[in-house]
């Protein structure tokens, strides 16, 4: 009797935990969606900021986020896939591989603001790229590299060993096997991981604070050596550096809504695709 009672209480508590989690996360989304929807319009998405950022749109910030994210992926995706190929297809177990694995794990744990410092010291200062899309993209790319490596490794591991054996037994070389059998079969998994990583870096702010972001641009960036506005930084700047709190908070809601929808849509699609893939493989 007592046993059943304690179980009921315990399960009740767990239910409350789940409910509280969903409530908190839900209310964040709720507030942003409801209050952000008010300023949301076609003009908001496509226009440049006007009247010292109390009106107009945030198109340059959206564009900046897209550039920075794409730049980071152009840099990190090939590099990450190459690392994963080495670790999964070439590496014999050993000392060197352990060191590489360890450095990937530790890189994944470095705080994002420290990446910002690194980018500032290396790309902005030493390489003289200045505060620019290039510096920001490279910084974000290094930040996202561990994520891409582990996603790509998971995808490569999911390719059945029997296919590699079949290819090698037919006299294919190691690289032929990788290029023609392993990679095509891992491709969808790698792409899912890449999409997930895009969702992750699109919202990163700290790494671009000192390397790429600017509060106000008159228009769109023209080259990779230009500074750029970016959605996440724009939210922060509107709230802390703004001069017209009322109108600018409304705009910040709008930016937060765009960013939230963008990131949630990207990661939701990646996660749903991944679940489908897993079910398909199982």
């Amino acid at each position: 009797m007592k046993k059943r009672f304690s179980q009921r209480i315990g399960f009740g508590i767990l239910w409350l935990c789940m409910a509280a989690t969903l409530f908190f996360l839900g209310s964040i989304i709720y507030f942003i969606v409801v209050r952000g929807a008010g300023v949301f319009s076609w003009q908001f998405l496509t226009d440049v900021p006007r009247k010292s950022m109390t009106a107009g749109g945030v198109a340059p910030a959206i564009a900046g986020t897209v550039y920075l994210t794409m730049g980071a992926m152009v840099f990190a995706l090939p590099l990450g896939i190459a690392c994963a190929i080495y670790l999964n297809e070439y590496s014999p177990r050993g000392f060197i591989v352990n060191i590489i694995r360890m450095s990937i794990n530790n890189l994944a744990g470095v705080p994002s603001v420290v990446f910002g410092l690194f980018g500032l010291a290396l790309f902005v200062k030493s390489f003289k790229f200045g505060v620019s899309i290039l510096s920001g993209s490279l910084t974000l790319g290094i930040l996202v590299l561990p994520l891409i490596i582990s996603a790509a490794q998971e995808a490569l591991m999911a390719v059945p060993q029997s296919l590699r054996e079949a290819s090698l037994a037919l006299g294919a070389t190691h690289w032929q096997t990788i290029k023609r059998i392993v990679l095509p079969n891992a491709l969808s998994g790698i792409l899912t991981g890449a999409i997930l990583s895009i969702g992750r870096i699109a919202g990163e702010t700290a790494p671009i604070l000192f390397t790429a972001a600017t509060f106000y641009n008159r228009g769109f960036p023209k080259s990779i050596f230009d500074e750029a506005m970016a959605l996440p930084y724009h939210i922060y700047a509107l709230m802390t550096e703004g001069t017209h709190p009322d109108q600018q908070t409304a705009i910040a809601y709008g930016c937060a809504l765009i960013l939230l929808l963008l990131v949630l849509a990207i990661s939701a699609s990646a996660i749903i695709i991944r679940q489908r893939q897993r079910r398909f493989h199982a």
């Binding site: 054996e165 079949a166 037994a169 037919l170």
Partner: peptide, 19 residues
């Protein structure tokens, strides 16, 4: 090893056609 495998082929326990 690549040359060896061209002269000595192998068929495995589970059929493993490429997709």
């Amino acid at each position: 090893a690549v040359d060896v495998r061209r002269s000595v082929g192998m068929v495995f326990q589970k059929p493993n056609p490429f997709p």
